[in-house]
Amino acid sequence: MLGSFAVLRKQSLLGDAISHAALPGIAIAFLITGTKDSNILLLGALISGLIGTFWIRGIITKTHLKSDTALGLILSLFFGFGMLLLTFIQKQPNANQAGLDKYLFGQAATLVESDVWMMAIVTGACLFVLLLFWKEFKILLFDADYTKTLGFNTKFIDVLITTFIVLAIVLGLQTVGVVLMSAMLLAPAAAARQWTNSLSVMVLLAALFGAFSGVFGTAISASQNNLSTGPVIVIIAGVFVLISFIFSPSRGLLFKQIRFIKNRRDLELKKTLAFMFHIAETHENISHPHTIKILNNFQGFTKGTLQKLVKKNYVRLDGTMWSLTEEGFKTASNLFNQQTDNNE
């Protein structure tokens, strides 16, 4: 759901970066407390995720490095540091350490009831804040400068959105793991984007897609053994995206292609008609019959187009001869006029 904002803000890869950046937070939280209480670990992840995010911001604004470099940099550095800490922890004499790396790939099956409650609460909070600041979020998203002139505290709203994105990611980590979190954030939003231009519809759709892929993914992975949940969910989400890309009515590839072909056919039809018109023009009687053969050296002519022209009652066919009808002549001359009009 929050992914919609990330996608529209062109910060799609932020999710990836944050999910990696959360790792050292988990490790440090564990090092400090020595327990495996998931809430404390999540807090650590949240903090280090936020640090990562704001450092990325800092790099982009303070230096000439581009956003992709900043993202990649923070992602790999934090993750590497997290790995260092994790391996360091493994050498520590603490029996509790096992299972920390479940955060890496996630195991939805290992979730316990309290985790689910925690998620529900945070999701509720996200929803509440989203509704509360809906207008502000929306306006900041599409026109940041305007928002500033209206007197909103853009920085505050920005931080708020970012915090919630980070929060959502950190929560999701447990379920699908570091690598796949970015897909969970992006895929539903990218799919939803194809169906609508309205932000509210998009957010709703994204939530729906996300929930669906979650349910389906879990179901499929539960039905067969040896199939981890996270990847299956991601692939389901990917299928959603693919379907959306291809079949969405206004932006989809399929309909685009159909429109494209239709346009081309239309153009060919008109070209043929114009060509006929030029031939017919040279005769006094516009309905003077000509052989079909002379059309053959004209590209764009096919039997199909001729049939279509006949159907539209522009052309009369008589054996191997064709002739323009009155109506066809009129349309053809208008066609010509329109074209010149358009050119001017």
Binding site: D68, G238, V241, F245
Partner: peptide, 17 residues
């Protein structure tokens, strides 16, 4: 249909999965 970063973010998790 989507921006470059979204495209990257979509492709690699799916392949990885």
């Amino acid at each position: 249909l989507v921006k470059e970063d979204t495209a990257i973010g979509l492709v690699f998790p799916i392949l990885f999965s």
